[in-house]
């Protein structure tokens, strides 16, 4: 086996073909099912009236210019920036905090087990259900307003999702709720991989728990955290169902993001070319991020 696949490079260094062999299932899948459609979308973005017209016309970067000069797109960009940055940071902080709490040595396994399940609850529901549930709770006559009034924290029924000033925050909150368990579970898994010896050594040196967190836990988790942040950024930037089913991008355009903008372009205005161009822009942003990620990976190994 070994000899068939192994070939040595000039320096007599390690094997060359093997990694590709290990990667082949992934690469074949992605090449066929993702690269082809993505290529088609990028092609659409340079034509006019694709899909609905049998003979689209090549228009160069016109669609990109149209999108980038559309004031609605600029608003969507601002909202997306807020939505993504607040979501990603909150996911990380909450996920890390809960994971640390759940990893404590002070509690028995049974207790921790129950809490782990409770904390992972939001993960178990599909986006449309999460949207409906929160829409119910944030309704002016919903349970949240009720609890706020019972607790004397509010005097009127606040229309969270249809208020220009609250809607974006409300939608972001829903997204935070829905997404943190992903961090928590991943970080919990990562915490198991940190050798206990490190903490023992630190304890002998008299390091406080806070110091241990910053000098052992965080650095050890860094590779996992960076992967999580990168992926979460890419996913959050295209979060659609939660926003669409709660506010539809409104009121007015207070919660319009890239994804709702693209959806309206494609399925409401039937401007697939512009939708493709907008998707191309999102792809561009995420690719830059991915390049940083890959650089970082390289620097570490």
């Amino acid at each position: 086996m070994k000899k068939i696949f192994n070939s040595f490079n000039k320096n007599g260094h390690k094997i060359e073909k093997t990694p590709y062999l290990y990667l082949s299932p992934t690469l074949i899948l992605m090449a066929v099912l993702l690269i082809i459609p993505i290529f088609m979308i990028l092609r659409y973005s340079f034509f006019d009236n694709v899909i609905i017209n049998k003979n689209p016309v090549f228009v160069g970067f016109q669609n990109y210019i149209n999108v980038l000069t559309d004031p609605d797109f600029i608003v969507a960009a601002k909202n997306t920036l807020f939505f993504v940055s607040v979501s990603v940071i909150a996911h990380l902080v909450i996920g890390l905090f809960f994971a640390m709490l759940l990893n404590t040595d002070y509690l028995g396994e049974k207790t921790k087990g129950i809490f782990r399940v409770i904390y992972a609850l939001p993960w178990m529901f599909t986006a449309s259900v999460i949207a409906i549930l929160w829409k119910m709770m944030l309704n002016p006559h919903g349970i949240i307003n009720y609890l706020l009034q019972v607790g004397n924290l509010a005097s009127t029924n606040i229309a969270w999702l249809s208020s220009r000033s609250f809607a974006l925050m409300a939608v972001t909150l829903i997204n935070i709720w829905a997404g943190y368990p992903f961090y928590m579970i991943s970080i919990l898994a990562g915490l198991q991989g940190i050798s206990g010896d490190l903490y023992e050594a630190a304890a002998i040196d008299g390091a406080t728990p806070v110091k241990q967190f910053f000098y052992i836990t965080l650095p050890q988790l860094k590779p996992i955290l960076i992967s999580l942040l990168t992926l979460d950024f890419v996913w959050t930037i295209q979060q659609f169902a939660l926003i669409w089913l709660t506010t539809g991008g409104g009121p007015i355009n207070a919660t319009e993001t890239f994804s709702t903008y693209i959806y309206k372009q494609a399925f409401s205005r039937y401007q697939y070319s512009q939708a493709s161009a907008s998707a191309g822009i999102v792809l561009f942003i995420c690719t830059i991020l991915a390049i940083f990620y890959a650089r970082q990976q390289k620097a570490r190994t």
């Binding site: 309704n139 002016p140 006559h141 029924n157 229309a159 208020s163 539809g248």
Partner: peptide, 20 residues
Amino acid sequence: SPGVYAMTESDMVEEFANGR
């Protein structure tokens, strides 16, 4: 009734059904 900017037809019916 408050909250109409995010309200759909099915939400409206529930408001009416609850006598609000």
